[in-house]
């Protein structure tokens, strides 16, 4: 039956492609680890290109501050309104502060920041590296004796892993600030009362959990963006397709990683 044979062949091709992707991603991760942790001590002129890390950090972190703080400010306000409408029924309006503080520092701050960064910078990584590949710039680096992983990927991964937690800190602050603004203007809670409840609700562990997650999210977004950029094929259309895939895959993997983290933290609690 030709239809069945073709379906089996397609399944086989998809499985082989999946194996290739896993092997390539593993090779890329090994390469990143080598140029990040081993090569700077083992090889001459193989250190991390810090000027490039700073340049990328400014683009990923500093330039994203307005959009990250604004979105988290609004989401903090939404969280306060939603939790107030629920908690009012139980006469526990003061717990609005706890709800906003915990949801922001543990989940919303890291997750929303990662989603924004995936859309802004992860896609930019894919487009930049993909366009460089199409213009033979990646080949030019190799033939000059400059390793493309060290030159292009390591600074981006490092900058992303540093910038995303810092953005998350700003996001946490603005989320709580948004919640406070709603609490004191709409819900009629006292300002000091709200702040005291916030301080009681969260401890350093909550913030650190969020920051740990966001550091991993940054690594995921950068690796996906760079991997898809390096593997771009098919000219300008291919660059567009890979850029879209970069956002979709990054957001999927970030949410999946978040699930694993949340389950892990739940179990150790």
């Amino acid at each position: 039956m030709p239809g069945r044979e073709e379906a089996l062949a397609a399944l086989g091709r998809a499985a082989l492609h999946a194996v290739d992707v896993v092997r390539d991603v593993w090779a890329l991760l090994r390469d990143i680890a080598f140029w990040l942790f081993i090569a700077p001590w083992k090889r001459q002129r193989a250190g991390v290109r810090w000027e490039s890390v700073i340049e990328q950090g400014v683009r990923i972190g500093w330039d994203a501050i307005p959009i990250v703080v604004l979105i988290n400010f609004f989401v903090g306000m939404i969280s306060a309104l939603q939790s107030a409408s629920l908690l009012k029924r139980f006469g526990q309006l003061l717990l609005v502060a706890n709800a906003v503080a915990l949801s922001t520092t543990r989940e919303l701050g890291p997750l929303l920041t990662a989603v924004i960064v995936a859309g802004r910078s992860g896609s930019a990584f894919t487009a930049e590296i993909g366009s460089m590949k199409m213009a033979e710039e990646v080949d030019a680096l190799s033939t000059m004796g400059l390793n493309p992983t060290r030159f292009l990927i390591v600074p981006r991964v490092l900058a992303m892993s540093i910038a995303v937690p810092l953005l998350t800190l700003a996001a946490d602050f603005m989320g709580i600030f948004g919640g406070w603004l709603i609490a004191v203007t709409v819900v009629d809670l006292g300002s000091w009362q709200y702040l005291r409840h916030t301080a009681d609700a969260i401890d350093m562990g909550d913030v650190m959990r969020g920051l740990t997650k966001s550091c991993v999210f940054g690594g995921i977004i950068a690796t996906v963006g760079c991997y898809l950029g390096v593997h771009v094929e098919g000219g300008a259309e291919g660059v567009g397709r890979s850029t879209t895939n970069s956002v979709v895959v990054s957001i999927f993997l970030v949410i999946f990683a978040n699930l694993i983290f949340t389950a892990f933290f739940y179990m150790i609690e």
Partner: peptide, 10 residues
């Protein structure tokens, strides 16, 4: 190596 389009870093 000189590539077709020059391959300069933009």
């Amino acid at each position: 190596v000189l590539y077709q389009g020059g391959a300069l870093f933009n």
